[in-house]
């Protein structure tokens, strides 16, 4: 089963290496990892998607908590949460096909962010399902390049995953 973890860490150099190294050497698999500073510039937030059964997950969380620079680890999987990922897709677009692509992109409420002579770059945001769907739709035109940020996630409602949050 896949789990989405929100990990608050000290915004220090090397902290990413500590977290990634720990997960690798304990033999856990990372599906995706997204990291950036929070509104408190001394704290970064990582969203880590890991694959594993409950026992594996319990160990991942406990081992992460042992790192001195890890402030808080929360498993959002079982909670009501929003998760999003951003992708950029460079798709082949001969002039004849452009309007069709633009229409499809519109349906997904995605955007064209670059127009080249033979290509378009599509920017899309959404959950995993939506990203998969847009990839499927664009594949017949020819995807030349594909990049995704990895998932970020947040609890719904007034509850938070902050240092002071529960």
């Amino acid at each position: 089963m896949r789990h989405t973890l929100a990990v608050l860490v000290e915004n220090n150099p090397g902290v990413l290496a500590r977290v990634a190294g720990l997960i690798r050497r304990r033999g856990f698999n990372i599906d995706s990892l997204a990291v950036g500073p929070t509104n408190d510039p001394t704290i970064s937030r990582m969203t880590i998607v890991v694959e594993g059964d409950d026992l594996v997950l319990e160990q991942v969380i406990k081992q992460l908590r042992k790192l001195i620079e890890v402030i808080k680890v929360s498993d959002l999987t079982a909670e009501e949460h929003v998760d999003r990922e951003l992708v950029l897709i460079k798709v082949k677009a001969e002039p004849a096909q452009r309007s069709q692509i633009i229409q499809l992109v519109d349906v997904f409420r995605a955007h064209i962010v670059d127009v080249g002579r033979e290509t378009l770059i599509v920017e899309a945001t959404g959950d995993e399902e939506k990203i998969r769907a847009i990839e499927e739709i664009l594949r017949p035109f020819g995807i030349k390049e594909f990049v995704r940020t990895g998932k970020v996630a947040m609890l719904r409602g007034s509850r938070t995953t902050s240092v002071d949050g529960e």
Binding site: A17, G21, L67
Partner: peptide, 16 residues
Amino acid sequence: ITGITLPITKHNYLVQ
């Protein structure tokens, strides 16, 4: 050495 000892220390520091 901080990289090398990452998995074998409780914590380590490179003083900047």
